[in-house]
Computed example of a mutant assay.
Amino acid sequence: MAHPSLLRELVERCETLRRRTASGGNAETVRQLEDTTRCAWSRAPTSWTRRCSSPVAS
């Protein structure tokens, strides 16, 4: 499990990229969001993964 400050940083990065994607982000922004989301979920506590069926928002 990652340090809480690293997880917080990854969540903030995901939120920033989601806003960019929602406001017309390009393919690179979408790729960065997918990569960051995957990275955050791979480091998340197991309790997070048990509560959610999918780590990537649809």
Score class of each variant (00 low, 15 high):
Thr37Leu: 01
Gly24Arg: 02
Thr29Asn: 03
Ser47Gln: 13
Arg43Pro: 03
Met1Ser: 09
Ser23Asp: 13
Ser54Arg: 07
Pro45Trp: 04
Arg8Asp: 10
Leu6Asp: 10
Arg50Ser: 05
Glu34Gly: 11
Pro45Phe: 04
Cys52Tyr: 14
Thr16Arg: 15
Glu9Gln: 12
Arg31Val: 05
Ala2Asn: 05
Glu9Asp: 12
Val11Lys: 15
Leu6Thr: 12
Pro4Cys: 02
Thr29Gly: 03
Trp41Tyr: 09
Arg20Leu: 11
Arg19Met: 00
Ala57Cys: 09
Arg8Phe: 08
Ser23Arg: 15
Gly25Asp: 00
Arg31Phe: 07
Ser42Met: 14
Trp48Ala: 01
Arg50Asp: 05
Ser58Ala: 13
Pro4Gln: 01
Thr49Pro: 01
Arg31Ser: 08
Thr37Val: 00
Ser58Ile: 09
His3Lys: 13
Thr49Ser: 04
Ser42Gln: 15
Ser54Met: 06
Cys14His: 04
Ala57Thr: 11
Arg13Met: 08
Ala44Gly: 00
Leu17Phe: 03
Pro55Gly: 00
Arg13Glu: 10
Ser53Cys: 12
Glu9Ala: 11
Ala22Asp: 04
Ser47Asn: 14
Arg20Cys: 08
His3Leu: 12
Thr37Ile: 01
Ser53Ile: 10
Cys14Asn: 06
Ala44Ile: 00
Val56Lys: 15
Ala57Ile: 10
Thr21Asn: 09
Glu28Asn: 07
Leu10Cys: 08
Arg31Ile: 06
Thr49His: 02
Ser54Lys: 07
Met1Val: 07
His3Tyr: 09
Ser54Cys: 08
Arg51Asp: 08
Thr46Pro: 14
Arg20Glu: 11
Arg18Val: 02
Cys14Phe: 03
Glu15Thr: 04
Arg8Gln: 13
Val11Cys: 14
Arg13Tyr: 08
Pro55Cys: 00
Thr16Met: 14
Cys39Asp: 13
Ser42Tyr: 13
Leu17Thr: 00
Arg51Trp: 05
Cys14Val: 07
Gly25Arg: 00
Gly24Glu: 01
Cys52Asp: 14
Ala2Gly: 05
Trp41Met: 06
Ala44Trp: 02
Thr37Met: 01
Thr16Pro: 08
Ala40Arg: 07
Ala22Arg: 02
Cys14Glu: 06
Val56Ser: 14
Arg18Pro: 01
Gly25Lys: 03
Ala27Val: 13
Trp41Leu: 06
Ala22Ser: 02
Ala40His: 06
Arg20Met: 10
Val56Leu: 15
Leu33His: 02
Leu10Thr: 07
Ser58Glu: 13
Cys39Phe: 13
Arg43Ile: 06
Glu34Trp: 12
Glu12Arg: 04
Asp35Cys: 10
Ser5Lys: 05
Pro45Met: 04
Val30Ala: 06
Ser23Thr: 13
Arg18Met: 02
Leu17Ala: 02
Gly24Lys: 02
Ala27Met: 12
Pro55Ile: 01
Ala2Glu: 06
Thr21Ile: 11
Leu6Met: 10
Leu17Trp: 01
Arg51Tyr: 05
Glu12Val: 04
Gly24Ile: 02
Ser53Val: 12
Cys14Ser: 04
Cys39Ala: 14
Arg50Ile: 03
Ser23Trp: 10
Cys39Arg: 15
Thr21Val: 15
Ala40Glu: 07
Ser54Gly: 05
Arg50Gly: 03
Glu34Ser: 13
Thr21Tyr: 08
Leu7Met: 07
Gln32Val: 09
Ser53Gly: 15
Met1Cys: 08
Glu15His: 03
Arg13His: 10
Arg38Val: 05
Pro45Ser: 05
Glu9Pro: 07
Ala44Asn: 03
His3Ile: 09
